[in-house]
Simulated assay, not measured.
Amino acid sequence: MAVTFVFDRDLPEVAALFLSPDFRRFRSERLGESQVSCKVKKTASQGHEFLMSRRVTRSLPAMFSKFFEPSQLFHLRENWQNTVKGWNGEFEVAIEGQSIDIYGDFALEPHRAGCRYTINHQCAARVPLIGRRLEKFVISQADKGVEQELTFLQAYLRGDIDGAV
């Protein structure tokens, strides 16, 4: 399932925050995540590669709490490519100590007077008996997390979040 969010700001302003490791750390910490690190490097094709780690704590349904701790360390690799339309890319997330991979693609493109961000999550869980249900749960949690991040970004752009990056 795709998550789509429309910003009322232009693409360069929104992209500048998406591409800022300082903003990513700020956002993660303000959303309650810990052990946040983020590095970015430019790629040969004028893109950006992000390597980000963060500890995320979420409540788990009883079915999954037997297998997983509520606090997990996520390692994200994200590649952004500048295109004629805007930006697009792909990502991979590894959850430390778990047999789960999250991956997908995203795009940030002009839309009316602002821009639109769309992200597609996919998941592969190599856990016997509960794998399919776990994949659905992980994708739903990933979607919720992205919605929180995008809502935070919109509030920051509007000046509703205190703090400078």
Rank of each mutant, 00 (worst) to 15 (best):
residue 24 R to V: 10
residue 96 E to M: 12
residue 114 G to K: 00
residue 73 L to N: 12
residue 163 G to L: 02
residue 102 I to Q: 05
residue 84 V to G: 05
residue 57 T to M: 04
residue 52 M to S: 13
residue 83 T to F: 03
residue 87 W to S: 01
residue 4 T to P: 06
residue 13 E to S: 12
residue 127 V to S: 14
residue 31 L to V: 04
residue 94 A to Y: 07
residue 146 V to P: 00
residue 71 S to C: 07
residue 83 T to P: 12
residue 115 C to S: 12
residue 101 D to K: 15
residue 92 E to T: 09
residue 100 I to C: 10
residue 52 M to E: 13
residue 110 P to R: 10
residue 82 N to K: 06
residue 40 V to W: 05
residue 20 S to N: 06
residue 126 R to F: 13
residue 61 P to C: 00
residue 94 A to S: 14
residue 142 A to R: 02
residue 87 W to T: 02
residue 145 G to V: 03
residue 39 K to W: 09
residue 156 Y to K: 09
residue 113 A to W: 06
residue 124 A to M: 03
residue 75 H to K: 14
residue 17 L to N: 01
residue 93 V to R: 02
residue 131 G to P: 03
residue 126 R to T: 08
residue 87 W to G: 00
residue 85 K to P: 10
residue 45 S to N: 12
residue 155 A to W: 02
residue 100 I to G: 05
residue 8 D to P: 03
residue 136 K to I: 04
residue 2 A to T: 07
residue 16 A to R: 02
residue 108 L to N: 00
residue 7 F to Q: 00
residue 151 T to D: 10
residue 77 R to T: 15
residue 132 R to D: 03
residue 76 L to E: 13
residue 158 R to S: 11
residue 69 E to C: 14
residue 70 P to R: 06
residue 15 A to R: 06
residue 26 F to K: 00
residue 30 R to M: 07
residue 76 L to D: 07
residue 48 H to P: 03
residue 71 S to D: 10
residue 16 A to G: 01
residue 162 D to W: 04
residue 119 I to L: 15
residue 66 K to E: 11
residue 51 L to T: 14
residue 100 I to T: 04
residue 28 S to D: 15
residue 114 G to P: 02
residue 139 I to K: 07
residue 15 A to I: 05
residue 94 A to G: 10
residue 24 R to Y: 06
residue 28 S to G: 14
residue 13 E to K: 08
residue 21 P to E: 08
residue 141 Q to T: 09
residue 69 E to T: 12
residue 101 D to F: 15
residue 104 G to T: 09
residue 163 G to P: 01
residue 2 A to N: 14
residue 61 P to A: 06
residue 131 G to D: 05
residue 95 I to H: 05
residue 8 D to V: 01
residue 28 S to Q: 15
residue 81 Q to F: 00
residue 121 H to M: 12
residue 21 P to Y: 05
residue 141 Q to I: 07
residue 74 F to H: 13
residue 75 H to P: 06
residue 5 F to T: 07
residue 62 A to H: 11
residue 157 L to I: 00
residue 108 L to C: 04
residue 156 Y to R: 08
residue 14 V to F: 06
residue 148 Q to A: 13
residue 67 F to L: 15
residue 25 R to Y: 00
residue 7 F to L: 01
residue 92 E to F: 13
residue 115 C to Q: 02
residue 145 G to W: 05
residue 157 L to Q: 00
residue 113 A to K: 10
residue 123 C to T: 12
residue 127 V to E: 04
residue 81 Q to I: 01
residue 116 R to E: 14
residue 143 D to N: 13
residue 97 G to A: 11
residue 21 P to F: 13
residue 130 I to C: 09
residue 28 S to W: 15
residue 135 E to G: 07
residue 155 A to K: 08
residue 74 F to M: 09
residue 164 A to Y: 09
residue 93 V to Q: 01
residue 77 R to P: 13
residue 86 G to F: 11
residue 42 K to M: 03
residue 117 Y to E: 06
residue 155 A to C: 09
residue 5 F to Q: 04
residue 32 G to P: 07
residue 35 Q to A: 12
residue 58 R to S: 08
residue 47 G to A: 00
residue 141 Q to Y: 11
